[in-house]
């Protein structure tokens, strides 16, 4: 079972690794975009898929990370990739600050609050809050990232940076899923009352998941800023949050392969549909409905967990 999965992951990774050798700059850049959204999706998956929190404002944390990187890089000339942990930290702290009073809200109320936070952040960025975000212009002139003296510039080079980050994310989140923390999250998503009854501090775990997911999005924001070299508020609109949310549900909420596939579909399909020119988004909308109807639980839904008992009897616990 795990061996098979290892083979699949390894095969996909190997296939991806040679992609830039065959693809032109455009398709490589599409893959880069997919990679960024895959990492964002995985971070949001922790919040939506595992903790079951309806978050439609994830772009806010992504923005905090990106702006942290951009401001410190342009003002103090700190190499941008070195700022990555700090970006995660600021996004995480920001998430902690706002999630603390609202984490107890249920379902759709939490949804509108996260939308609200996302909009407030975007409006604050546009209005040049504290005089450091550059207003609608955004921040430009971000230095190209370099890794051990190698300046990363071309899409092919970014490809390896981004997908290495995605691989790291997959590895860490896979470990997390099977940790005590991951199990607790799934328990409280399935039945909060029962989880609480079993001695799980639900508010604490939800908050942890929220902050961790946000911090990870902040780190992706760093890579985004490094790649674009210019960031502007419209890159962090409500629509971005919707895209991240959609790719999770479409691919399979709570499932890492599902989220990866979701990123390929949500970011890749509009590119494939470019042939339809003006109709491309209409086709895309119809495709979204169709995919949801034919695979209601997402395309690659999370598999029920299986635990082998030490003795002969094998017990199943479905998640």
């Amino acid at each position: 079972m795990t061996e098979k999965r290892f083979l699949v992951y390894g095969g996909v990774a190997a296939l991806l690794a040679v992609c830039p050798l065959f693809l032109n700059a455009y398709w490589t850049d599409v893959l880069n975009s997919i990679g960024l959204y895959a990492a964002l999706g995985l971070s949001l998956n922790l919040i939506v898929g595992h903790a079951g929190l309806f978050n439609l404002g994830h772009a806010a944390f992504y923005a905090v990370g990106a702006y942290t990187a951009a401001i410190l890089n342009t003002k103090f000339h700190i190499p941008i990739l070195a700022l990555m942990p700090l970006c995660g930290l600021t996004a995480g702290l920001f998430a902690l600050l706002i999630a603390r009073p609202i984490i107890h809200l249920r379902g759709d109320y939490l949804c509108i609050v996260t939308i609200g936070v996302g909009e407030i952040v975007r409006i604050a960025l546009i209005n040049n809050v504290f005089g450091i975000t550059g207003g609608a212009n955004g921040i430009f002139g971000i230095a190209r990232p370099s890794l051990m003296g190698w300046v990363i510039r071309r899409p092919q080079e970014f490809f390896y940076l981004i997908w290495a980050f995605v691989a790291l994310t997959v590895f860490l989140f896979h470990r997390l899923e099977n940790s005590r923390f991951g199990r607790a999250l799934n328990y409280l998503r399935e039945d909060e009352t029962a989880a609480e009854g079993s001695g799980i501090d639900t508010a604490h775990y939800k908050l942890m998941a929220f902050v961790l997911g946000a911090a990870w999005a902040g780190m992706v924001g760093n890579i985004y800023a490094a790649k674009m070299t210019i960031i502007a508020p419209e890159s962090f609109s409500f629509w971005e949050s919707v895209v991240m949310f959609t790719l999770i549900i479409l691919g399979g909420s709570g499932s890492i392969p599902g989220v990866l596939l979701g990123a390929f579909l949500i970011v890749g399909l509009p590119e494939v549909f470019r042939g339809f020119t003006n109709a491309r988004m209409m086709v895309f909308g119809a495709a979204m409905i169709a995919m949801m109807i034919f695979r209601t639980g997402g395309i690659l839904p999370a598999r029920p967990r299986r635990y082998e008992l030490l003795k002969e009897e094998a017990a199943e616990e479905s998640t």
Binding site: N24, A25, S235
Partner: peptide
């Protein structure tokens, strides 16, 4: 009308 999509469009045109 958005920078990210535009960057992709530019890459595509450039090829």
């Amino acid at each position: 009308g958005d920078p990210r999509t535009a960057a992709l469009a530019a890459q595509r045109l450039a090829t």
